Amino acid sequence: MDEFIDFLQWPAMLVTLTAAYLIGSKRAERRVFGFCTFILSNVLWIVWGIHDEAWALIALQTALMVTNIRGIFKNEST
């Protein structure tokens, strides 16, 4: 299981990059999907951070998740 968690940082990085690409879209639907993708990356980073006891990373990802949730609501209102 430890090897799987160690490997998790690579999919987390790819999901984060994909989300960043989607956020740059002119279409609101894609931006919302980008924020949802960012939330998935936040969860992946938190899981990895718990395993490695990276408490600052966990705090950062939690705060970023809140901003991503806010981004979803801000996009739906435009």
Rank of each mutant, 00 (worst) to 15 (best):
E3A: 15
K26R: 13
L44C: 04
A20L: 13
H51K: 06
M65I: 10
A19W: 04
G49V: 04
V43T: 05
D2P: 03
S77H: 14
I23A: 12
I5T: 07
I58F: 01
L57A: 14
D52R: 11
L22H: 13
M13I: 13
T67C: 07
I5E: 11
D6K: 11
M13W: 08
T16G: 02
F7G: 05
A59Y: 00
N68W: 08
T18K: 08
F33Q: 07
R30V: 09
R31H: 04
F4Q: 09
G49I: 00
E76T: 12
L44P: 02
I72T: 09
R27K: 14
I50K: 01
K26M: 03
W45C: 01
L40M: 10
S25T: 01
V43P: 04
F4L: 13
W10P: 05
F7S: 06
V43D: 00
M1E: 12
A20C: 09
L40C: 09
R70W: 08
G49R: 04
A20P: 01
N68K: 07
I72A: 13
L57M: 15
T78E: 08
F7N: 06
A63E: 00
F4W: 09
G71P: 07
I5Y: 11
F33H: 00
S25Q: 03
R31V: 05
N75F: 12
T78C: 07
G71N: 15
T62W: 04
V32S: 04
L40T: 02
G24A: 07
D2I: 08
L60I: 13
D2V: 07
V32K: 08
G34F: 00
S41F: 05
D52Y: 06
S41C: 12
D6C: 06
V32P: 01
E3C: 10
L64G: 06
T37K: 01
K74S: 10
C36L: 14
M1C: 07
V43M: 03
M1A: 12
M65E: 10
Y21C: 11
Q61R: 09
V15T: 15
S25C: 02
V66A: 15
T18N: 01
F73R: 08
T18F: 08
T67D: 10
G34Y: 02
F73H: 05
D52W: 11
G24S: 09
A28L: 14
Q9D: 10
F73Y: 13
E3W: 11
K74V: 08
I58K: 00
N68E: 14
M65P: 10
S25D: 04
W48S: 02
Q61L: 05
T78K: 15
T78G: 08
G24M: 07
I58Y: 03
A19R: 05
L57W: 07
T67I: 15
A28Q: 14
A59D: 03
N68Q: 15
W55Q: 09
R70G: 00
L44R: 00
R31G: 02
I23Q: 11
T67V: 15
M65Q: 13
Q9C: 09
I50W: 08
